[in-house]
């Protein structure tokens, strides 16, 4: 006979994902009340924007088991696409955002289809090359992109009469997007599709023998991650009203990868942690500015050497195994 308390615990266990999302949502709604410093809000908004990119990238790296060193390019397509679509072409912001995401999806299809036939380093090369190509275009084609000095005057987003034009408004805007992306990704990995992807990441042959269309799955995840990066880029452009090529070079792509690794490959929740840590790190070690790169690199190397599954996943896995073994010892 289950007591009320058991039932409560069972309910919590059953809905743990939904409840955690809800709790995080409540904290986020209340956050601007507690933290009114626009600089700090700006940082947390940047975390939200990056998290959207890194969520998609983590699906691609951690679930599909593939490498992309070019996600900043899709981020750029979203940002510059929205900038050009709204300013140069005078289109309405929201439809432009969707159209640009569609373009990003098509480009991902074109890059991914041939590259994903092969594994590992070919994809690393293709995505890196793609990033370098996009970056060069941003810098060189100044008639359209504004060149190295950037693209200014991007309009703020509006819904009805609400204009998203200050850090508090941005907060609600970008975190809504981030939470929706988080929820969608959590749903995906908890489904049959997600299990197929997890299988694919560990053993392609076994996954295929179980009925996973491995090639198609990889291309789909790549496209999904490109769309998320593009949407994040559009948000980035509309919030800062200004974009310049330096936000989209290959080192930014590498930073995205570091965020994935720190959070843990294949850990959706870890993504938030990894993104936050790597975004905030430069703030905390400002005094050590010149050591910044070395510290970034050391974090990456240490995690990969000692917890190859990533910080969060590694610790969670270790604890889980420990608990399981203890319980049955």
């Amino acid at each position: 006979m289950l007591t009320t308390r058991d039932n409560l615990f069972y309910f919590i266990y059953l809905h743990r994902t939904g409840l955690t999302v809800l709790a995080l949502g409540v904290v986020l709604v209340a956050w601007p009340v507690m933290e009114s410093n626009p600089y700090n809000l700006g940082l947390s908004n940047l975390i939200a924007i990056y998290a959207i990119v890194v969520l998609g990238l983590n699906l691609f790296i951690g679930y599909a088991g593939q490498i992309s060193l070019g996600h900043a390019a899709f981020f750029a397509i979203g940002a510059y696409g929205s900038a050009i679509g709204t300013v140069t072409l005078g289109g309405p912001a929201w439809p432009v955002m969707m159209a640009v995401a569609l373009v990003a999806a098509l480009i991902a299809l074109a890059v991914g289809l041939p590259a994903l036939k092969l594994s590992g380093h070919y994809l690393a090369m293709a995505t890196l090359g793609f990033n370098i190509v996009v970056y060069t275009i941003l810098v060189q084609w100044d008639a359209v992109t504004g060149g190295p000095s950037g693209f200014a005057g991007i309009p703020y987003l509006t819904i009805g009469s609400v204009v998203f034009d200050n850090e508090i408004h941005f907060h609600y805007l970008v975190w809504t997007f981030a939470m929706v992306a988080l929820l969608l990704c959590l749903n995906l990995v908890r489904s049959g599709v997600g299990r197929g992807l997890a299988a694919l990441a560990e053993d392609e042959t076994a996954a295929a023998a179980l009925g996973v269309d491995t090639r198609r799955a990889k291309v789909k995840v790549f496209i999904l991650s490109a769309v998320l990066a593009s949407v994040a880029g559009s948000l980035f452009a509309h919030c800062y009203a200004f974009v310049s090529p330096d936000s989209f070079n290959i080192f930014v792509s590498v930073d995205f990868v570091i965020m994935v690794v720190v959070g843990g490959m294949g850990s959706i929740w870890g993504t938030l942690f990894g993104t936050a840590l790597i975004t905030l790190l430069p703030e905390w070690i400002e005094a050590l500015e010149s050591f910044k790169d070395i510290i970034h690199g050391l974090i990456l190397v240490m995690i990969l050497l000692f917890l190859p599954q990533g910080l969060v996943t590694g610790i969670v896995d270790a604890v889980r195994t420990r608990i399981a073994l203890n319980r049955h010892a």
């Binding site: 489904s191 179980l210 009925g211 996973v212």
Partner: peptide, 14 residues
């Protein structure tokens, strides 16, 4: 896997 839903969109909506 074969018996499960295969569409990404449907899976994401849950």
């Amino acid at each position: 896997t074969v018996a499960a839903e295969r569409s990404f969109a449907v899976s994401m909506m849950r």
